[in-house]
Simulated assay, not measured.
Amino acid sequence: MAAGGLSVLLCGINPGLMTAATGHHFARPGNRLWPVLHLSGLTPRRLAPAEQEELLSYGLGITNVVARPTARADELSAEEYREGGRILIEKVRRLAPGWLAVVGVTAYRTAFGDKRAAIGPQERTIDGPLGTTRIWVLPNPSGLNAHWTAETMAEEFARLREAAGLPDRRTHRPA
């Protein structure tokens, strides 16, 4: 686990309206984050959005690039993404996760000013007083991102899990 206690800080784009109403990340029923976390082995079972605090017991945290809720991410301005990226960097410096995992390549490109970023590990890192955080860009689990299936997303999330040194929690049993 990283110096700050989190292996991976998952970072969504911004809260949707359902998330804003419930206070739970990725709360919209069509969002595939929760099933993908389980399919990838990051969680031992499919969690419900209301169980998001359980992520901490697996070394996972969850946040957003932009705090303002919207019905769709395309309602956000480029400046909101850039400001959110600046705030996120400061959060990462304080929390010092091993990995920052941004879900959504377009959000990452805009927030971090990296027009050529692709899904997967990035060369960029974030240095803070507790250590260095590496960055991984994951596919957006929104149901609107139809060219990624839950299974293909889970494969990419599993690559991150392996890079972070986390066990496959679908089969892992403590000794």
Results as ranks from 00 to 15, higher is better:
residue 115 K to Q: 06
residue 133 T to C: 02
residue 47 L to P: 00
residue 36 V to E: 15
residue 29 P to V: 05
residue 36 V to G: 09
residue 142 S to F: 15
residue 20 A to S: 04
residue 12 G to V: 01
residue 108 Y to G: 05
residue 19 T to P: 00
residue 94 R to N: 07
residue 81 Y to V: 11
residue 66 V to W: 02
residue 100 L to H: 10
residue 12 G to Q: 14
residue 82 R to E: 13
residue 132 T to H: 14
residue 51 E to Q: 13
residue 101 A to C: 02
residue 146 A to W: 04
residue 2 A to S: 10
residue 135 I to S: 00
residue 75 E to R: 08
residue 77 S to V: 01
residue 24 H to L: 04
residue 74 D to W: 03
residue 7 S to V: 00
residue 135 I to Q: 03
residue 32 R to E: 07
residue 61 G to H: 06
residue 155 E to N: 00
residue 87 I to W: 09
residue 132 T to N: 13
residue 78 A to M: 09
residue 70 T to R: 11
residue 55 L to C: 01
residue 83 E to S: 03
residue 138 L to S: 02
residue 109 R to C: 03
residue 48 A to S: 09
residue 17 L to K: 00
residue 57 S to C: 09
residue 97 P to R: 12
residue 142 S to R: 05
residue 30 G to M: 12
residue 173 R to F: 05
residue 99 W to R: 01
residue 43 T to R: 04
residue 121 P to Y: 14
residue 70 T to K: 07
residue 42 L to I: 05
residue 133 T to H: 07
residue 122 Q to S: 00
residue 105 V to S: 09
residue 136 W to K: 08
residue 142 S to M: 11
residue 111 A to Y: 07
residue 167 P to H: 15
residue 154 A to W: 15
residue 71 A to W: 09
residue 12 G to E: 14
residue 172 H to S: 02
residue 37 L to P: 02
residue 111 A to C: 02
residue 118 A to E: 14
residue 136 W to Y: 12
residue 65 V to D: 03
residue 148 W to T: 06
residue 123 E to C: 06
residue 35 P to I: 08
residue 173 R to K: 06
residue 115 K to F: 10
residue 92 V to C: 10
residue 154 A to Q: 05
residue 58 Y to H: 03
residue 126 I to R: 11
residue 134 R to V: 03
residue 146 A to P: 03
residue 138 L to N: 01
residue 44 P to W: 15
residue 134 R to H: 10
residue 166 L to F: 03
residue 139 P to A: 13
residue 149 T to E: 09
residue 56 L to A: 10
residue 162 E to I: 02
residue 71 A to S: 04
residue 145 N to Q: 07
residue 8 V to F: 11
residue 114 D to H: 05
residue 121 P to R: 14
residue 32 R to Y: 11
residue 42 L to R: 02
residue 106 T to S: 01
residue 66 V to K: 00
residue 11 C to N: 04
residue 109 R to S: 07
residue 23 G to D: 11
residue 112 F to T: 00
residue 50 A to E: 08
residue 31 N to D: 15
residue 42 L to G: 01
residue 9 L to E: 04
residue 141 P to F: 14
residue 1 M to E: 14
residue 114 D to L: 03
residue 20 A to D: 06
residue 149 T to F: 14
residue 53 E to N: 08
residue 70 T to F: 12
residue 118 A to G: 07
residue 130 L to R: 11
residue 69 P to D: 10
residue 7 S to K: 06
residue 67 A to R: 11
residue 53 E to Y: 15
residue 147 H to K: 01
residue 128 G to A: 08
residue 66 V to N: 00
residue 110 T to D: 12
residue 137 V to D: 04
residue 67 A to M: 09
residue 36 V to Q: 13
residue 48 A to D: 12
residue 41 G to R: 00
residue 123 E to V: 15
residue 164 A to F: 11
residue 31 N to H: 14
residue 102 V to E: 11
residue 86 R to S: 01
residue 149 T to W: 12
residue 51 E to D: 15
residue 150 A to H: 01
residue 129 P to I: 07
residue 110 T to C: 08
residue 58 Y to A: 05
residue 68 R to H: 02
residue 25 H to A: 12
residue 95 L to A: 02
residue 58 Y to K: 02
residue 57 S to M: 13
residue 140 N to Y: 15
residue 94 R to D: 05
residue 22 T to C: 03
residue 79 E to Y: 13
residue 4 G to E: 13
residue 123 E to W: 12
residue 120 G to H: 10
residue 34 W to M: 06
residue 106 T to N: 00
residue 74 D to A: 07
residue 57 S to I: 11
residue 48 A to Q: 14
residue 74 D to V: 04
residue 148 W to A: 01
